[in-house]
Write a protein that binds this DNA or RNA. Structure first.
Length: 311
DNA sequence: GTCCAGGGTGAAA
DNA sequence: TTTCACCCTGGA
């Protein structure tokens, strides 16, 4: 991987030779909720305190700062965010012939697992409980517009509100923003992080089991939400997220025992996929989503996206 | 207009 | 282990 400046142009953008990255599937496919497509192409969002546009290009992505600042340090920041240190090549090799993942890898190879800010990730996935992606984006968007610190020209160009700020505004404020019953989980979680009782950064160094236990100790954080935070922000590639769609996929493609519980299925998948669990999980989730979307449109998605027969 | 599902969790049975 | 309430938004 290399980072090259592009200062000969007036755009001040940075090219990252990451290999192909499917920007839409990666940034706006249910891992993160603050990326918005731009008319001019690519996706606009915030990483740390920087406002950027991320666009696909040959052999990688182009990062363009939209906050008027220079591109110094942007390459490193974005490589880390885009999960560049994940073992994507090892994953591709190992599962090239897998019944479920092989076709997925050939159909849409540019999917990555992000490395997000842990607090934003925790907040977002507590919010995700019995919700859907449009609504999660709506909720997260409204809370950052109200409480975030502006770092760019647009209303959504704001940093994610610190846990101190979220605990300060209280439950009713979040309910009024439309978070519903999740508000009563979000405020205590913010308090735990703000007080230092829960140190999310330390959990990056902790084992998977330790970190998962620390997260599920929070009210409103079960195994599912914990695994999302572990995979998408706490450097735990052995994390495997099971919802009802993934459970169905596991039954369909693998020798998972009949009537396995969500919890059992997650243990089974972690054992089966090992350190490639979070990548396998994301490709499987994406495949199920495309299949579902295709059937809702009354069509078949296998012809284009998947070279092999679905059934 | 009504109905329903949506990347769940916690408490009670 | 299973059932149920919890909020509410968008699409059918």
């Amino acid at each position: 991987m290399t980072v090259s400046d592009n200062r000969t142009t007036t755009t001040n953008s940075v090219f990252l030779s990451t290999g192909y990255i499917d920007v839409e599937a990666t940034l706006d496919g249910g891992q993160a909720f603050r990326w918005w497509p731009e008319d001019s192409g690519g996706y606009r969002g915030i990483v740390g305190r920087r406002v950027v546009n991320v666009s696909e290009t040959d052999g990688g992505v182009v990062i363009t700062p939209l906050d008027g600042k220079s591109s110094d340090g942007l390459g490193h920041l974005m490589l880390e965010y885009l999960g560049e240190d994940h073992d994507i090549e090892g994953f591709r090799t190992r599962f090239a012939d897998d019944k479920c993942l092989g076709p997925a890898l050939r159909g849409y190879s540019g999917l990555r697992v992000l490395r997000q800010d842990p607090w934003e990730c925790l907040f977002s996935f507590i919010t995700s409980s019995t919700s859907n992606i449009p609504r999660i984006k709506l909720n997260v968007g409204s809370v950052v517009e109200c409480l975030g610190y502006s770092v760019g020209p647009k209303v959504r160009d704001v940093t994610f509100p610190e846990p101190e700020v979220v605990s300060g505004v209280g439950e009713q404020f979040l309910r009024d923003l439309g978070f519903g019953f999740r508000a009563k989980y979000l405020v205590p979680a913010a308090e735990a992080v703000a007080s230092g009782q829960l140190n999310l950064t330390d959990l990056r160094e902790a084992t998977y089991a330790e970190a998962r236990e620390a997260l599920t100790a929070l009210h409103g954080v079960g195994e599912k939400v914990a695994d999302c935070v572990l995979a998408f922000s706490l450097d735990k590639p052995e994390s495997f997220i099971v919802d009802r769609h993934i459970l169905r996929a596991l039954h369909k493609w693998y020798d998972l025992p009949e009537n396995s519980s969500i919890s059992y299925a997650a243990d089974w998948a972690r054992d089966y996929f090992g350190d490639h669990s979070s990548l396998a999980n994301q490709y499987m989730f994406h495949r199920e989503r495309l299949a579902r979307r295709a059937s809702e449109w009354g069509g078949v998605h296998t012809a284009r996206a998947l070279p092999e027969d679905e059934n």
